[in-house]
Amino acid sequence: MEGLLTEVFLGSLLFGAVTAGVPLLLSGLGEQISEKAGVLNIGIEGMMLMGAYAGFAGAYYTDSFTLGFLIGGLAGVMAAAVMVVLCVLLSMNQIVVGIAITLGGEGLTALLHHFQFSRSYPRLGRPETLPVPWLSDLPIVGSAFFDRNPLVYAAVLLTVALVWVFKRTHVGLNLQAAGDKPAALDAAGVSVTLTRSLAVLSTGLLSGLGGAYLSTIGGGLFLPFMTGGAGFIAIVLAMLARGKPMWVLFGAFMFGGSLSMTTAMQVAGVNIPTDVIQMLPFAMVILVLIIFARNSYLPPALGNPYHRGAR
């Protein structure tokens, strides 16, 4: 086991933590926005898959990662639009619609993949990185944190930006009001429907981007069901972060680390069945839930459709 503490192992663990963590971070932040506004988005797994497929196909056909991301984000927004129409505008059960979006996302992307790529299984090339001067030359952390695709930096910057948005802008106030007491927001003259719709669409955008990252930069190829529950982990992250983006960031890289254990272990020459490693993140979620059970927080109006006049 002495191989565990080598530079190679740590480097690949951290590198993998970031690679696996960015999709979790993006979709976790997205889920946080929805939850803040009072919409429990169970469909995030489906939105990620839509983003992953569209992002991969986009990058493959346009030969541009940037366009791939854009198309992936757009696919997420489109999946979210279904949720907006059904849940926010028509006040349907958020859980039923969420499950439907996840199932539909799984089925549709698997089907698309089958008809388009299942014979060739094309791979994308290595994406360009944007090394940060000096920092990228540091041992271990250099390549893990400072020699990455711009989207990685953008995701981290977005976290910081969201801290500011939640705390210091009208958008932040409106989101919080929509989740805590929608009637109060309505009485203040702000449309709850609009606030929630935009929140859900942002969730779609971010989870679409997260999915696109997974397929383009993370793996370089699309596989059916490739998110493997990442969307649900994102929901847990948002739940435990209690409305604080920084906690999503922290949690995402923690979970990313446990997801990337497999590869790192293999690099270090330790042989543990992959299934055991695969259990790690989920076991961690359960453990975290048990330990911090009292501290998880969800807005009072979460999951409830808003009708004016119905109190």
């Binding site: 349907m92 039923v96 619609v97 089925g107 089907l111």
Partner: peptide, 19 residues
């Protein structure tokens, strides 16, 4: 996988019908 898509559609239309 097509059955998955059918199930998802079934669920969506169930919600719509109910509405």
């Amino acid at each position: 996988y097509f059955v998955l898509v059918l199930v998802a559609l079934l669920m969506l239309f169930l919600a719509v019908t109910e509405f």
